[in-house]
Design a protein around this nucleic acid. Sequence first.
DNA 1: GTCTATACAAAGATAGAC
DNA 2: GTCTATCTTTGTATAGAC
Lengths: 185, 185
Amino acid sequence: MNKRKKEIIDLSIKYLRKYGFDSFSFQDIAKELGIAKASIHYHFPSKEDLLNGVLDEIKLGLIAIRSELRVVDQNTQKLKRFFEIMITLNPKEFICPISSLQAEYFVFSEEIQDKIRDISKTEIGIISEILETGRDEGEFVFTSSPEEEAKILLSSYKGFLLYSRALEKEVEDDLIERLVEKLLK
Amino acid sequence: MNKRKKEIIDLSIKYLRKYGFDSFSFQDIAKELGIAKASIHYHFPSKEDLLNGVLDEIKLGLIAIRSELRVVDQNTQKLKRFFEIMITLNPKEFICPISSLQAEYFVFSEEIQDKIRDISKTEIGIISEILETGRDEGEFVFTSSPEEEAKILLSSYKGFLLYSRALEKEVEDDLIERLVEKLLK
DNA sequence: GTCTATACAAAGATAGAC
DNA sequence: GTCTATCTTTGTATAGAC
């Protein structure tokens, strides 16, 4: 992909995570990159095209994380590594881009909604697979399905990010430890 | 409060919870009420004025819930009743208005941010108080502070609402039961 | 590939009639 | 209290020059 195109997408994800998709404009992106608003339209004719680019990038990110986790051997470690990556990607004031998209879900076209659903499922799939294997190997104990447990785990973490920005508090390092402890032992 | 004013606020909260604050317009509200866009401006000169009205209404709602819970005697029952109310207020496709505001937090002025923080703290306070009393009376067991536990509990539930809309699944009735079970026993 | 210029639509907002 | 009319600003989008 074109270097400029990549820059625009990365910046859009930043704005998405800080303000929401409807709350930033081509002008915001153009200004920060020091180019004209119209130049953004060259790379992405419409804002929906830009969103498509953003969604593809998020999906690729998830796939990369999944690959990285394949080489980690313990399931507890996989889980910790997953959230370690999440925390690195989510500094203070920034929420998960997927949460942001879910919050505005009904603003988007069906095509976009389908992509958001696919991304949400992929993410749940990653955690769910770890939980299932971990349960079968005796590392984790839980009563409901791996998928339901994965949803609770991800929900807790992401909901926490939302609260943290309003409370103006950093997410504490041991949050994941506590969540895993609580939910899976 | 004026009847029309109340209608506008209630409808705004509905739109806030379905699309986000930046994603609905005075026009949307006016159309649904069958009045002119300018009529909304009569009640709320600016959109920030409208948001202030929305925030006051949300705060009053929380205070009403707190009062209602005071007459419930068991702490487990208080907790269940709280989420029972939440579930009734959050039908399919609608997320918690507080989550929605937290997602757009940095779009708003400092004055608004302060109000969102106050609302977030009030909500956590309600749950936190129940958890603390419940722990002291031996109903609940948890290791971290009542406030931290309250944040996790609320985060799980609200994060779950976000996922549910993207997965196009209803939140199952036993979610709260499972969360309380997991987190506090 | 990025620019200027411009069009077009929508949103927020105001003034003044009824 | 609600209306019409109008204004301003902003956001998305297009055309065509460099």
